[in-house]
Nucleic acid binder design. Structure first.
Lengths: 337, 337
DNA sequence: CATGTTTCTGGAAGCGCTTCCAGAGGCATG
DNA sequence: CATGCCTCTGGAAGCGCTTCCAGAAACATG
């Protein structure tokens, strides 16, 4: 047991006794409540210092009905995909926002059935004060689980075909238009697109942005193949597109990874980028700067997304009525377009 | 307030009342304690079902003095570095192990002073039952903070010049020997090494492995430059080494990223890999398979590391006395050596 | 039938904190 | 001096659960 026997921490009663006041008085000092005399405050503060007292989080949580913990739930078919830098960025952003408060972050990888039932339990057992979730697919069970709990919840991105009450999203539509407009501005007209999964909001919105920009320019989508946001998927899609539209002069890929795959295929096919074919990606991940040529892409700040999610949740927990947010995206010009 | 007012959950008292038994009896049913009659059990279970009751985590935590939460603390100068796939892998491993228990994971990015004081508070306030930490530098304040709290703690890796009581580490020494022996087996003798920071256990152990293998082969270290585990650092180190030892015929880089940087510099310098210079890396990250040529490297399973850390912590919390673990590494042969 | 053992029960006392409330003092006002 | 209003205080009642304990009920033993 030695290892598992943390030494006992002093309690509020001991502090009060040492300071010669009642427990309520001591509590008031700690919570900076009004109506505490200077003498009392100083006596209590002295006792706290001498005893090395720290209020027990659990006891406080029980009394206030606030755990001081918020959850971030990530849904993913393949847990290994969590390694995606995307999630790391979200976490960094969320942590940054939470650091300004007294809240801590509980991380739930709720991909498996077991993970989801653990989450359900956590929420219903009031183990957290609120939850942030990244649910990509509309039919993602996470949405339902979270909804039923009745806890404050903030979505990162919007699930497909469902507008949650509170969400933070990147301006995928606007970003895609930006990208396409840029290609159009370069004089390209035979612009094809490699989309993400069309059964996700992101995938669909980025396609819609491309389409709208084309239509606005008096054109029609020149060629479209659905990818899956991965490099391999992008490469495969590019092959199909080259096959179907050998005269294409530009590509808008809905993610940097797919763009990287496309670049590889284009180079193998003897096309020069950007001379023969201009390419624009989306996300502005690290890899965008490392491709050859470096990738012109649409920048979105995932850290900012995480940060805003956390802020929104904090507001919700405080009983405010925040409004959902769409974060702007911007074009980053590099060599590929 | 609407949003922040989760509906009230039923309490154990209500369950007991509905089942027509005392609260203690109901509690016994829930905790599967002995001495509960069949009739009582069924009545309580029925009431639980009808009410949709879930025991309140906080209340239970207060009574049992167990929060059911463990922390994973990551120390890092630059929070952006958290994006390193390394940490994601650790988290996946930890989560996998926790999923088999009732424990949840609290993530602490304790790089800043604020983050560290929050962590100190969390531990002393008994907000978690135990903690896992990745502290690379010996002087990392995390080690002290955690030690003072008296909570069960498990280290991932060993801080420099300090053997924590409980840790899980990769066999860095053995892996480095494996790599160097492989190069020696190829007939190379003018083997140089690019080390990680020598002020970290990892950096030092990997260098020691290289050195031991060389000495065992009757050689002395042929050339050594300290890198910093990054690609840029690896490239810079490689330049220096080429300058100092133009006739080198092999490189052992203490990380894949540094190896990638070295490959680039070697290719720029007109050396062919592996014909002129054989290169071995360490870590077996995704990039190892994507370099040109693909990198021969030492594989270590970071997921396994996370998993074992969590298991060890679970054992500690249960009052057992586990023993520290060193996880084996193995050579993965690809094109570069 | 007296006795002992085992199974089961509910009352009550916690766990360590917050918060409501009645009331004690101090002060100014009329 | 009576009255009112602030400031401050400690007692007590929670928050929702676990667990100890005394004792009731059921059963077996001599």
């Amino acid at each position: 047991m030695a290892a598992a026997t943390p030494r006992r921490q002093p309690t509020l009663d001991e502090v009060a006794a040492r300071a010669g006041v009642s427990r309520s008085a001591a509590s008031r000092v700690i919570n900076q409540a009004p109506y505490v005399s200077r003498a009392t405050r100083e006596a209590v503060e002295k006792a706290i210092r001498e005893l090395g007292y720290r209020p027990n989080r659990t006891a406080r949580a029980l009394a206030t009905r606030q755990t001081g913990i918020v959850a971030l739930a990530l849904s993913h078919d393949d847990p290994a995909l969590f390694a995606d830098p995307f999630f790391a960025q979200v976490i960094v952003g969320v942590s940054a926002a939470l650091e300004e408060t007294d809240l801590h972050l509980l991380l739930c990888l709720a991909s498996s059935g077991r993970g989801r039932s653990r989450l359900t339990n956590l929420l219903h057992a009031r183990g957290v004060d609120g939850i942030m979730l990244m649910a990509l697919h509309g039919e993602d069970p996470l949405t339902g689980i979270v909804g039923e709990s009745g806890l404050p919840a903030v979505h990162g991105g919007r699930p497909w075909h469902a507008e949650p009450q509170w969400y933070v999203d990147s301006d995928n539509l606007g970003g895609a238009r930006l990208a396409t407009d840029h290609l159009l501005g370069l004089g390209r007209t035979r612009i094809v697109t490699i989309t993400g999964q069309m059964a996700t909001e992101v995938g669909e919105a980025r396609y819609r942005g491309y389409r709208e920009a084309m239509v606005m320019a008096g054109l029609v989508p020149y060629g479209t193949v659905e990818g899956d946001f991965t490099e391999a998927g992008g490469a495969a899609a590019m092959k199909v597109l080259l096959d179907r539209h050998p005269d294409l002069d530009a590509v808008f890929a809905a993610s940097d990874k797919m763009a990287a795959g496309a670049l590889r295929v284009l180079s193998d096919a003897g096309r020069t980028v950007p001379a023969d074919v201009a390419v624009v990606g989306f996300d502005d991940l690290d890899i965008a700067a490392q491709t050859d040529p470096p990738l012109t892409t649409v920048h979105q700040s995932i850290q900012a997304l995480g940060k805003e999610m956390a802020r929104m949740l904090i507001a919700l927990i405080a009983g405010e009525q925040p409004t959902s947010i769409i974060l702007p995206t911007r074009l980053v010009r590099r060599g590929s377009a």
